[in-house]
Amino acid sequence: MASFELICPAGTLAALRAAVDAGADSVYVGFRDETNARNFPGLNFSRKELAQGVAYAHARGKQVFVAINTYPTAGNAGAWHRAVDDAADNGADAVILADLGLLDYAARSRPKLRLHLSVQASAANPEAIGLYRDAFGVRRVVLPRVLTINDIAKLTSEIDIDTEVFVFGGMCPMAEGRCSLSSYATGRSPNRNGVCSPASHVRYETRGSKLVSRLGAFTINTFDEEEPAGYPTLCKGRFTTHDKASYLFEEPTSLNALHLLPDLKAAGVKALKIEGRQRGKAYIAEVVSACRLALDRFDRGLPYDATVLDRVTEGGKDTAGAYGRAWR
């Protein structure tokens, strides 16, 4: 039996097909609106596309999850309710939710729908996770990227629902779903609008030989001519403290926990998730294939190459992030 279920991102139908073809066990997607945390221009699924994606995946024995993981706006929760209803009606295998009120709605109005707790809910201890299970029948929790492997092992031993953790992709140094840095600079936040450091507020400028990346009214980074660049995600910018410039919060890195497969298995993790619904299908195909190969070799007790994805990491760097204590 496979050690892990591989959960892959798709921002478009083409990416969903690429993910399934490359060896995803499940693909997670979002609708083309503010109900999901990757509400980017030109991205995500219409209802029709979801139905097509579900058909494609199901025909190949794979699953589709729908992320409805932003927080419904007060006085205007209709779009989120419709998203839950339409996900269920179009054959989604699970919905990934974060908001208490929306979980309550889904549990009551769609009792047969499988519920996963989004990383955006930031449920970081067994007590919190137990509450979501007891109150709403949540079957799986996507763990926040603030836990060490030891924390995860301890946590998994104390709860009786599946755990899913991120194995590769962009990473937040902050507890997800509890961050207003983006909206402080741009007025648009992951929780309310499904965007972090949105492209609408990003500008690249050339100053002499330097490339300057700006978010809203603020300079987030500058790059020398030959230096690898990064998207101006606020927490991956360069800032000054005590007159010294540094990547104070996080370097422009990607999470890569492939080398931790034995530890993640020992910790009782059920599913591994790849971040990146906003990435192109070429990237999806490459990352999913590489992870699939690594997982298959791991399952057969063979050595595998954990550095195979270094080429596609942001800024050409990767990190094990919070899984290792040294990150703190």
Partner: peptide, 30 residues
Amino acid sequence: DMGCVAQLGGRPHWIGPFVNVYNEATLAWL
């Protein structure tokens, strides 16, 4: 955090600004 909410059972308490309360349904549930 929600872990504390869980441990409080149903007894009267306050919710701090670090628990996400964005809408009426969440407020009602809490």
